[in-house]
Design a protein around this nucleic acid. Structure first.
Lengths: 158, 158
DNA sequence: TTGCTCCTCACGTCACGTGAGGTGGC
DNA sequence: TTGCTCCTCACGTCACGTGAGGTGGC
């Protein structure tokens, strides 16, 4: 059987008792299975296991099954923020290793890396702009050819 | 030995007799080696062989060595245009297979594919814009923290 | 003979997708 | 017993990079 990943609750109604486990203790007691974490974040099971294999996540175990703590969930949020910002998984691991102690609410990047990443993304944006521009020109050429074909058809009957 | 790829003429002065072969015939007589084509287009030898393995290029042979004609070079230009426009190699092969007969000066994409690609790239651009925006916010937070640290240091001496 | 350019495997990278085949608790 | 969720290999994808080891003509 294939694992279903992120869509096992298609109606959007997930069993709440699994997600929070209220009253079972306090503080870091919101322990989740891999399936619950996947559903909560939109990340596939495979991706979560992959992040672990790359040293980005380190869930504990209950027998063979992985158990993710609130700290793990917060760390995953930082990983996803890093991906949104265009960092590779290797870079994200570096960033999180740098000052993991701080338990930062946002990705703890330094000034230099921040500036370089902005430059990097701005270059990509410029490439994208040029590509979009070129495609729009192609599109208007297609339109012009269509008009020309109409007129050509008219002329060819002369 | 490693193959040097695109940088074998670091001074920018390439032997002209290799690039054109003047007077050897007419029409499609501008035959190039893989190294010459690589140097002329900035594509690596590996990439050229890879495009061939994917059915995008089909150079003839002189013994074991590949020989690229003017038609091959023009086709490569279309491939590179496709890549700039964000198409995958598989899509580029489809596009070039569609109406190869036309020997088009620009990538012969149809209206539907053009519109969809524009949408696709515009989505990517939006993601990029958001990322850049988020990074700029992080940057200004870093700046603010630096100022706060200065003031904090002053206050802490009180 | 030395150098250069060319060749063909073939493994590595990046971020996972996609089965295959098996386990454990309700 | 059936279903569900979980597990671990392990091969596939995309667009090449990077050696290793060998060939051919000046």
């Amino acid at each position: 059987m294939a694992e279903s990943g992120t869509q096992q609750y298609a109606d959007g109604v997930r069993p709440i008792h699994l997600a929070i486990q209220p009253g079972a203790g306090q503080a870091d007691t919101a322990r989740m299975t891999i399936g619950e974490l996947a559903a909560a974040t939109g990340v596939t099971l495979r991706a979560l296991r992959f992040y672990q294999s790359k040293g980005l996540l380190a869930p504990s175990r209950n027998g063979r099954a992985r158990v993710f703590s609130l700290a793990d969930r917060n760390r995953l949020d930082l990983i996803l923020q890093g991906k949104r910002l265009g960092f590779t998984l290797g870079e994200i691991r570096e960033i999180l290793a740098d000052r993991d102690r701080e338990n930062s609410p946002t990705l703890p990047i330094n000034r230099k890396r921040c500036v370089e990443q902005i430059k990097f993304l701005e270059r990509q944006r410029q490439d994208l702009e040029q590509a979009i521009c070129e495609l729009r020109q192609i599109y208007s050429c297609l339109f012009r050819d269509l008009l020309a074909a109409d007129h050509g058809a008219a002329r060819n009957t002369l």
